[in-house]
């Protein structure tokens, strides 16, 4: 589904060139559950933006569903993004003047879907995240967990095949965070490809495949043991069988991956 080859991106910050991504290769199969961890400034978010077609690589190639994206025009990238990729952000990014339902309808509105169809789909998706009765509420009237559920619903409304989450639990308390993780993991079980950038080791460990980045390079790419290893009390259903043949539970700091992030080590 995702093929990154030799992707490099350099930003200039305060006159200094900063390497956000350096010769990154990554391939992701449909239905995978991947967490990306690493210190601040390691290029996690840049990778996410690159995958989400929000950013263009300086060099290297990115094929999404077999389509070479770097040659596409901005218009086409925008359409591809709207139709194939759902985003979830740390700060929810809901528009305050719109109701929950209108926020969810936004991607469809941008795509020019007719109002009746929009309303139907949005209502269904809102029910799917368990907030059917909150349709008319504005973001100011919802709790953090509910806001993120609305944001998830918005990410889902175009029926994307790839869900990109940037610190989805960063602004939530423990309970709400687990709640949100539960929702997106459920989506993953239903077939969506999920990529979560996080600082939270407990959340990172739940993924079937864990990437660790340092200085723009994927230094670790391991098939984790999923949910079971991290926090036993969680009730989420076993995603672990995705990666049953994984290496022994190497801690997040273990350096068993390839140092240059060369060949991706997904065991599928």
């Amino acid at each position: 589904m995702i093929e990154l080859q030799g992707v490099t991106k350099t930003y200039t910050m305060g006159g200094q060139p900063v390497r956000a991504l350096c010769q990154v290769d990554l391939s992701v199969a449909p239905g995978e559950y991947i967490s990306v961890m690493g210190p601040s400034g390691s290029g996690k978010s840049t990778l996410l933006n690159m995958l989400g077609l929000l950013d263009r690589p300086d060099s290297g190639s990115y094929r999404l569903n077999g389509l070479a994206t770097e040659t596409l025009k901005e218009e086409e990238r925008a359409r591809l993004r709207g139709e194939n990729i759902g985003f979830i952000f740390q700060s929810f990014q809901l528009i305050n003047r719109l109701t929950a339902l209108e926020n969810i309808e936004l991607p469809m509105m941008l795509a020019g879907v007719n109002p009746r169809e929009r309303r139907q789909t949005a209502t269904a998706v809102l029910a799917q995240v368990g907030l059917a009765e909150r349709a008319g509420h504005r973001p100011g009237q919802l709790s953090g967990g509910q806001l993120q559920r609305v944001a998830i619903a918005r990410a889902l409304v175009m029926k994307p095949r790839l869900l990109l989450a940037d610190e989805p639990t960063g602004n939530l308390d423990q309970a709400a965070g687990q709640d949100v993780i539960g929702v997106i993991e459920q989506l993953n079980r239903e077939g969506i490809t999920l990529l979560v950038v996080t600082h939270d080791i407990n959340i990172g460990r739940r993924a079937g495949r864990r990437l660790r980045m340092v200085d723009g390079v994927i230094v670790e790419d391991i098939a984790g043991d999923g949910v079971a290893g991290a926090t036993g009390e969680r009730s989420a259903s076993p995603v672990a069988d995705l990666s049953s043949s994984a290496q022994s539970d190497a801690g997040p700091n273990a350096n068993s991956g390839k140092a240059t992030g060369g060949e991706s080590g997904a065991p599928h």
């Binding site: 990238r77 985003f87 990014q93 795509a111």
Partner: peptide
């Protein structure tokens, strides 16, 4: 956000 949700620059 609009751009992330599929809005082009135009």
């Amino acid at each position: 956000l609009l751009k992330a949700l599929g809005a082009s620059g135009r």
